[in-house]
Nucleic acid binder design. Sequence first.
DNA 1: TTTAGTCCAGACAGGTTAAG
DNA 2: CTTAACCTGTCTGGACTAAA
Length: 286
Amino acid sequence: MQSKRHSPRLLIPQKLLRVLLVLSSSTGPLAGIYSGWTGSKVKQPYDAFLLLDFEATCERGKGFDYPNEIIEFPICLMRWKDRDGDKASQLEVVAEFRSFVKPSWRPNLSEFCTELTGITQQDQVDAAPSFPAVLRSVRAFLVEHKLIEKHGKRRLRFCWCSDGPFDIRDFLVKQLFISQVPMPEWMAGDVLDVRSVVAAHTSGRQVRRQPQHGPWAGIGLNIPAQLSALGLPPFEGREHSGIDDVRNLAKILKKLAFMGIRLQPNAAVNPRRRWAWMGKSGQILE
DNA sequence: TTTAGTCCAGACAGGTTAAG
DNA sequence: CTTAACCTGTCTGGACTAAA
């Protein structure tokens, strides 16, 4: 039976202690609130930012050496609110674009994919336009917001941004191959990988260190962890929903701008990159 | 297969207390 | 004094995670 011995010491559970330690340390969720508060304007070479986060078809365990087809194409357009010459510090979302995309090679989503992204087969994917059609809508969106001319030439200095270098470098390049569409000139060029900027400015206070070598080198923090590392409120919406991911990414970019970080491309895109499953003229080898 | 970090449970050592 | 019960800190190993 239980002994009825009383304890003379003040007992503080170890778990509680650990929580208190995390809250009070400079690596805790409150760190960014104090450390990143600047708001001073710095030279910014871009007029506008197009934040992108594709969702794509996927199979459990197949990894990324796979013909992923884009099924959601969400964009947040951000512009400077306080531009003064070429200096600025405050970014805001001024427009959004969102379309689902109907895949052509494997039009049926796996259960894993539906569960991961929350995207539904009937209502969203089956009813969606094909990728080339969505690309035309995106171009119209950019024309409407005066980023490009009708024929596609750039009017403003803008930069595509994503969480990691993967979206345009891998998913778009794969999709262009599958749809047999050339890289639009208004999407060509290097991109801003927001995640690596966050990694560069949160190292030292190590919320989570990332591998320096090997296949996972540079993968870094996911969006919720980046929000936490910057002292921002938690993720809003549904993770792996493209539009929600991109809205949360917008908060991260806004914060980085406010911290006085110059926002410019940092990841190269090779539109001619090929994967092993790519056959001749858009054919997919299995 | 590969990286590098976090988190958690379990084992263990050592200290303290009350019962025998 | 000896011992069992209890508490704590430390260590270790395994599971888990990261673009879709």
